[in-house]
Structure formats: structure tokens, C-alpha cells
């Protein structure tokens, strides 16, 4: 299906709306969001809390379904599918990276990376091979037998990236991937995401509220009150490690500009 899609769009969302019911109040989290993501893009979605970032992330990740609007993922309409079909889409087409890593604690790095393939029906031998390869790609080949509690935060997030990679997803969705990391580990993680994007052409969408992280991507989409208010290319994307993190003050000014 992806191949049949000649315009190379990985994500096409059109007028997505999502309303939650909190007690007796309806909260309109998304009020019609439209954008497209080309294959091979590295972009960030920003916005203050309550802007609808998380809701958008859940919809893009097929963890939730929109009330209205359409969502083509890799050319396939996924806006109105059943639970099992959504699970299949998540398994094949989406790689998740979470702020809190979400690795299985009593399981080795390798086994953690095998998890998506377990549900994808990949035979054991191939699972092991692909998981090892993914761990090598994030520079953790020598940590394959380690449990998460034996790894640093940055290493854990790298295991999570390897896990997101193993099923060759159409897009990697990273939700505040550096939010729980010190700045050095954060840059390390960004560096890996950038090189995956640059070298392997993997589409990466990062949700963040950190302008410095956003400057490492090619494009920024800003949400506010459930709408896209800015959708622009980053003039000179930073290469991870190239620039020191500026002071918080200048970042805020930049964000305001």
C-alpha cells in the first residue's frame, strides 16, 4: 500500500477532531488539525500543555481514534478501524519512543527489542537477528544481555529506539524522548534519531516542548488550543552535539519570536 502511494506522504491528516468528555464537560482537544508528513522527514510538534499534543500523538500512534477527519498512514486510511486492526497497524507501521522508556524491567535489552516482533509473528531466530542488528545500530551491541536497571537513562532510551526500529515502521513517534534525560544523554539520543533519519531515511516525528530539541529537526508544527498555529521549516537545523545548549532565557525568547 505504501508503495502504491506515489506522492511519498507517510502521514496525511485532514481536519482531525477529537473531543473528550470529562465529567459533564466536553473538552475539545483537537479542533481540526491538518498536515502532511513526507517520507524521510524529521519534524517536531510543539505546544504548551493542553494544546492537544498528547491527543494528536495518540491519534497518530493509532492508540486512539478521531471523532472526525481522515488519517492516511502510509496511504492506508486508519481513522476508523477495529481494535485488532489498530494493533496490527501499530505493530507494523509505528515505532514508539516514550519519555519514560517503558522497557520491561525483568527482560534483557535484546528481549525488549524482540517484543514488537513477538506480536508480529516473526520466527524466533529472525527475531533475535533483527533485535541484535537494531541494538548494534544504536551502539548497544555489547549491552544486549543487560537488564534495564543495569543501563543508564540514555542507554535505556537507546534500547527503546532499537525496539522502535525492529519492525521497519513507516514512522517513529517519539514523545518527549529526551524529557527524562540529562542534556548530554539527550543530545546522544537526538544524534541517533538524526542519523537514523539521515542515513536510513526513517521518518521521525518528535513531540516536545523543548525548543532546543525542536531546532534539531527540519520542521516545526506548533499547536495551540487544538489547532495548528505554525507549520514551518527550521532555517538551519542543528546537528546534535554541534551547538551547546543555550540558556533557558534565550530559548524562551526564541520561542516567543
Amino acid at each position: 500500500m505504501g508503495q502504491a502511494n506515489s506522492n511519498h506522504q507517510v502521514i496525511e491528516i485532514e481536519n482531525l477532531t477529537r473531543t473528550y468528555r470529562l465529567g459533564k464537560i466536553d473538552v475539545q482537544a483537537l479542533r481540526g488539525v491538518t498536515f502532511r508528513v513526507r517520507r524521510g522527514e524529521l519534524l517536531s510538534v510543539m505546544g504548551p500543555s493542553g494544546s492537544g499534543k498528547s491527543t494528536l500523538m495518540n491519534l497518530l500512534g493509532c492508540l486512539d481514534q478521531p471523532d472526525a477527519g481522515s488519517y492516511l498512514l502510509d496511504g492506508e486510511e486508519v481513522g476508523q478501524l477495529g481494535d485488532d486492526q489498530l494493533a496490527r497497524i501499530r505493530n507494523r507501521s509505528i515505532g514508539f519512543i516514550f519519555q519514560t522508556f517503558n522497557l520491561l524491567a525483568r527482560t534483557t535489552a535484546l528481549a525488549n527489542c524482540e517484543l514488537p516482533m513477538l506480536y508480529g509473528g516473526v520466527p524466533p531466530r529472525e527475531r533475535k537477528e533483527r533485535a541484535s542488528k537494531a541494538l548494534a545500530e544504536v551502539g548497544l551491541a555489547d549491552r544486549a544481555d543487560h537488564h534495564p536497571n543495569e543501563l543508564s537513562g540514555g542507554q535505556q532510551q537507546r534500547v527503546a529506539i532499537a525496539r522502535a526500529l525492529v519492525n521497519n515502521p513507516a514512522v517513529i513517534l517519539a514523545d518527549e524522548p529526551t524529557g527524562n534525560l540529562d542534556s548530554k544523554s539527550g543530545i546522544e539520543v537526538m544524534s541517533i534519531l538524526q542519523s537514523l533519519n539521515r542515513d536510513a531515511g526513517i521518518t521521525v516525528l518528535i513531540v516536545t516542548h523543548d525548543p532546543f530539541i525542536a531546532r534539531h529537526t527540519q520542521r516545526v508544527i506548533r499547536l495551540q488550543d487544538g489547532r495548528v498555529v505554525v507549520d514551518e521549516a527550521v532555517a538551519h537545523p542543528l546537528r546534535a552535539g554541534e551547538a551547546e545548549r543555550p540558556s533557558e532565557v534565550s530559548l524562551e525568547e526564541e520561542a516567543r519570536a
Binding site: L63, A87, R88, R90, N91, P116, R163
Partner: peptide, 11 residues
């Protein structure tokens, strides 16, 4: 939650 996110079905 994680298992479901990476593709585990209900069953």
C-alpha cells in the same frame, strides 16, 4: 500498555 502499543491484541 506497552505490549498493546507495540501490537499486542486483546486476545
Amino acid at each position: 500498555g506497552l505490549r498493546k502499543a507495540v501490537g499486542a491484541r486483546r486476545r
